[in-house]
Simulated scan of single mutants.
Amino acid sequence: MQTQLIKLVRDIYATNEFIPLHAPVFMGNEQAYLAETIDSTFVSSVGKFVDEFEKKIQDFTHTARAIATVNGTATLHTALYLTGVQAGDLVITQALTFVATCNALYHMGAKPIFIDIEPNAFGLCPNATSLWLSENAMLDDDGQCRHKESGAAIKAIMPMHTFGHPVQLDELLLVCQEWNLVLIEDAAESLGSYYKKHHTGTLGRFGTLSFNGNKVITTGGGGMLLCREQQDGVKAKHVTTTAKAPHAYEFYHDEPGFNYRMPNLNAALGCAQMEQLEVILANKRATAQRYVDFFEKSDYRFVVEPEYAHSNYWLNAIVCPSLDSRNKLLEATNAQGVMTRPVWQLMHRLPMFADALRGNLNNSEWAEARLVNLPSSAIKVS
């Protein structure tokens, strides 16, 4: 299996050189727009490309307002802040996620509650979430959801669309409605993914995108806050711009704010990348199909989009038959210059989150021992 897989990957990318997991692809106006930005001298947080990039993402996702930020973690932090999450509050999320999801909570002084995933798309399981709440939570006289034992307020549910595959949003929204919780979608990996024809990040009150160098498109570093309501977008723009009140020359800041503005240089790169997005997405689906065909009659399950979704296939993934087969695959491919990676270690195994509340994590632990990500870069076309 390992030898045949290495040959397949080398055939896909037509190289005998090192093959990374996910590299950016530049095949449009990136250099031209960067040069234009430098020539304009507006390289920081003021410039035309910031507004253009926000508008491009807003139009593509059909959200009410999109606000550019310096990175995905800053975007998560902003979403939590605008939701009203405070120190000591609890937020439900999944243990199988990238650490940024939980880092944003940590820096709010809030704490995660880790709930299990469902074993197909590897996102937060609505049934497991509902069960944990029914056993461990209550609504107080004001309708606030609280942890029965500690009395701490539970403010939100924050699922992640793992590898770009959408979670079961309708079911999670019903749980939010029952328990008076806000849904924040960590859509960092899912630009170009759709849940029942709705772009990910647009059904919750907030959604967050990342444009790190390893994402579907990149701005070098950057993020975007998707706001379902226009007034949330106005507020987000204000607080991420140091909460500075508009004035011709005076500096007056009317509340605590963040300096989370995306620089114009990064936005210029993003505008050029957005012009190629449809090509990149089609390219990535074609690569995913080659993996589907390769693994079809094997003991390894290729992770495909859920039946209710259209996924971007950000990171292609397989489920190995066992931990031993996973480790052998990782060792053989990486030794031959084909980068593969296991899924992230579960968050409750990390020292800073070891004491977090959690439910039964059987599916998460099963996936942790078997998931492997395969090279997933788009292929540059002329």
Rank of each mutant, 00 (worst) to 15 (best):
P246N: 10
L281Q: 01
T287K: 09
Y13H: 03
P246A: 12
T241K: 14
V303K: 03
L209T: 04
L34S: 04
I12Q: 05
K215N: 13
H161I: 04
P112W: 11
W314Q: 15
T242H: 04
N283P: 06
F163I: 12
A243C: 13
N212T: 08
A23P: 01
L183F: 03
D186Y: 05
E331M: 10
E135S: 12
Q336M: 12
N373Q: 15
L191G: 08
R65E: 09
T37H: 05
P256Q: 08
V70S: 08
C102L: 12
T340I: 14
I12F: 02
A272S: 07
H107V: 13
H348S: 07
N266L: 05
S322D: 06
Q289V: 03
L8W: 05
L169R: 04
C125M: 00
F211A: 02
P159T: 09
A121I: 00
N212S: 15
N334Y: 09
A288G: 01
L281T: 04
L203T: 10
A23I: 03
M108V: 08
A267H: 03
A268C: 10
A267E: 02
Q273Y: 02
G233T: 02
H147Y: 06
V319M: 06
A156P: 01
Q4M: 06
E368A: 14
A95Q: 11
L34N: 03
G47F: 05
R261L: 11
L96H: 15
K237A: 13
F163A: 11
H62R: 11
C176M: 04
A243Q: 05
C320Y: 02
T241S: 15
R301H: 10
A23Q: 13
I154E: 12
K284G: 02
L34A: 07
P351I: 11
F60Q: 03
E171N: 08
P375C: 08
K237N: 13
I113N: 07
L371E: 00
F42N: 15
S130H: 12
L172F: 08
L357H: 09
V381Y: 11
Q336P: 02
P263S: 12
A121L: 02
E30F: 01
L183D: 02
G72A: 03
N360P: 00
T208R: 00
V381E: 14
F211G: 01
I92A: 09
